[in-house]
Design a protein around this nucleic acid. Structure first.
Lengths: 417, 417
DNA sequence: TTAGGGGTAACCGTGTCTGAAATCCGCCAG
DNA sequence: CTGGCGGATTTCAGACACGGTTACCCCTAA
């Protein structure tokens, strides 16, 4: 429905916008503090007067977005009333459209998944059939979740890039034949009746981290999405960076290995050609570590083989270890490029392939990153794995809606139209 | 003085902030339209009501930031009163602290330089002596410019990185021995009495483009600063990206040539080791194209030699052409990494070494960038040379002050403290 | 019971935006 | 030469959100 990105020239702001913005600021403060906050604490944190906090709290209570949850009295005086997010206050539906599987979640306000479904992405090259299937499945998960329709803020879709954010279209993604400039947003909006937001899978994952990832989703970070490909989502000062057309985070052609295999871009040792799971699996098969029974082109097969490779590495197979560790080194080089370009304070790993490699990467990557950091004398770079889990894509898709509705984006203040 | 970057958690906003912000929005709209704007046009552009525009216009007129400049009547009705920036309404002083030369400018509101000076950066490793020299020279250029002290909004300093934005310090830059964590901001503030902003040279250059660069300084772009080193300044949606500590834009270790020379980072063919002017000059000397009389380590010598190399290339020397063209190819690869990561719409070249290579780069880089662009099906990437000229650093430094005071940054809306 | 802190209500003031109405200005028809 | 016209701009209330103050109630520990 509404646009995600802003259009120049910059537009002014007015009173109602300000009120709404302050509301989201307070909600954000509550959201980011595990255990909730009292009104006095809020006043101190967001800098508004106690009255204003009181007024806005009432609005939030009326909207059922927060609840009063007990009291906390340390010394004398009236104990503070703790305000907490009301998980049942708002829900969003998220769809991760992956070439192999499509995942559906219904997520509540605190980022918990209340309903979950997964189907094989229908093959063929008829997007409209896929869209119909998605719409039907969305209706089903909502039905099964038992959530009141009125409480569902909208539907978010995470799609593989490239996308066109302005039109909500998917533009010719490599692994979805026939999907050239499909108007995903409009079609789904019409088919489901929800307001729909489409974004790139890696961006969605980053949004998932800001919304459901706890403290590691605050401030400035890069979300490294380890999927069929490797991409990143970028968050600077708590705001998601999407780029002109929503395609930020394309790092597949960062060169990381001068002695690497040739890439379709004409160079050698790009991320895409030297450290994505498919390549590692192929390497392992070529070296006889894995018995390559099939071509292994399908997503599911690669995922299985890669899981086996990771198991081998964890159980001490030196050759498997070498493959994973080398990929960690190469990925770290790519990340260095991004962190040095953007000077972020944190790198968050995640995605469907992450869990298997987590231990080795978390041991290997931080020192490499630190050594290559241009700002290492000023601040360290934290490296963590996401707490969001394997469904980051779908959870991120749902988070897109909540973020768009409830996050204190500066954008919200600006007039539209 | 005041901070440039924001600190989480996000704080609320209030009425006065809103008013100030809208004022900057209107000023920004006027600034970006050559020929000025009438009130009605402004109302349409920024989305505020004509009344509000009128009120704010009066404030701006009272502050002498804008002037009424003639009328424009097309048909019947009262002709529109054109509002234009008043160049003499505000000034800023900019200092570009480069290891070789230090440049000073006094700049007016429209980005014109009204006074200019250049001195050799004092050698030795006593920063305090350098700071004293700078302070004295600042006083002199202001004196010579004849500008009223009250109209000077502040002093901006562009320094080589790494820097620590929070403290306004320069942290151990490679070419300034003895400058480890020098409190440049505080020292200069005390010595000159102005409010001082310190930022990285490449960031300053990007800010110069937004402020004094005309249409190429709008929207989202990357400013490629071709100096002793190569770095970039990043602007997304009209807001400068500085990173956690102000060190964004470090691209020196992006690998661009798998067969390139070894780099101090342990890899091969980094930007820093394969396409900065010093390397190209050395290559040319080794090949006998330039007669390498001296080691050529000093900045001035490299600049001269490089200028000669560019002249040779322009006059048809095939070997010189090859060197420049190859460096264009390599630089284009690095830019591709950045543009794909950030999905920007424009690349702006500039910096002290730019003019010599401009023609060849502008012919060579765009098609390479286009070919490697992940979003090439959605939008093109514009490539232009800056209109700001050789003093981007100093002009950018001055622009830092104007940007901080007058640009409609979302930051401005947020409460502090 | 008292002291002290949390939270709400009520009021006024300030500053901003919005909407309606009045004013201003130059062209143009008569 | 003059009055009407239409668009630009300003004036004049409202509406609204926050800031500050005061009063008041609530609650708990001492």
């Amino acid at each position: 429905m509404s646009e995600i990105r802003q259009s120049s020239p910059r537009r002014g702001t007015n009173l109602p916008r300000m009120g709404d913005f302050n509301l989201t600021v307070i909600l954000d403060a509550i959201r980011r503090t595990s255990g909730g906050l009292s009104r006095v604490e809020l006043a101190q944190i967001v800098g508004l007067s106690p009255q204003t906090i009181s007024n806005i709290s009432r609005r939030l209570l009326d909207q059922n977005l927060i609840v009063e949850a007990g009291k906390e009295g340390s010394g004398p005086g009236k104990p503070r009333t703790i305000l907490r997010l009301n998980p049942k206050g708002m829900y969003a539906v998220g769809v991760h459209l992956d070439p192999a599987v499509t995942t559906f979640v219904v997520m509540d306000l605190v980022g918990s998944v209340v309903q979950h479904a997964r189907i094989d992405t229908p093959g063929g090259n008829d997007p409209s059939a896929v869209i119909a299937t998605i719409a039907a499945q969305v209706a089903r998960v909502v039905e099964e979740s038992g959530v009141d329709q009125d409480r569902i803020a909208g539907l978010g879709v995470a799609a593989p890039g490239p996308i066109d954010l302005d039109n909500g279209t998917v533009v010719d993604p490599p692994l979805l034949p026939g999907w050239d400039r499909v108007e995903l947003r409009n079609a789904l909006s019409e088919a489901t009746g929800y307001s729909v937001l489409v974004d790139k899978d890696v961006t969605s994952a980053a949004v998932a981290e800001t919304w459901a990832g706890g403290p590691s989703g605050a401030g400035s970070f890069v979300f490294m999405y380890m999927g069929t490909g490797i991409g990143c989502g970028i968050v600077l000062n708590d705001e998601v960076i999407r780029g002109t057309s929503g395609n930020a985070g394309e790092i597949g052609h960062i060169m990381v290995d001068p002695d690497g295999p040739p890439c379709d871009c004409g160079l050698r040792g790009c991320v895409k050609s030297s450290c994505i799971p498919q390549v590692l699996v192929a390497e392992a098969e070529a070296a006889g570590i894995l018995n390559g029974t099939r071509p292994g082109n399908s997503g599911a097969e690669v995922q299985q083989s890669f899981a086996r490779l990771c198991e081998l590495a964890d159980s001490g197979d030196e050759r498997a270890m070498a493959i994973i560790d080398k990929s960690a080194t190469l990925v770290a080089r790519a990340i260095s490029v991004v962190t040095n370009t953007l000077d972020v304070e944190r790198v968050v790993f995640g995605g469907p392939f992450w869990s298997g490699m987590a231990d080795r990467f978390l041991a290997k990557v931080p020192p490499l990153l630190e050594a290559n950091s241009a700002a290492r004398l000023i601040h360290p770079i934290e490296v963590v794995g996401t707490g969001v889990g394997e469904d980051v894509g779908a959870i991120g898709a749902a988070s897109l809606v909540l973020e768009h509705t409830l996050a204190p984006r500066a954008q919200r203040l600006l007039l539209e139209n």
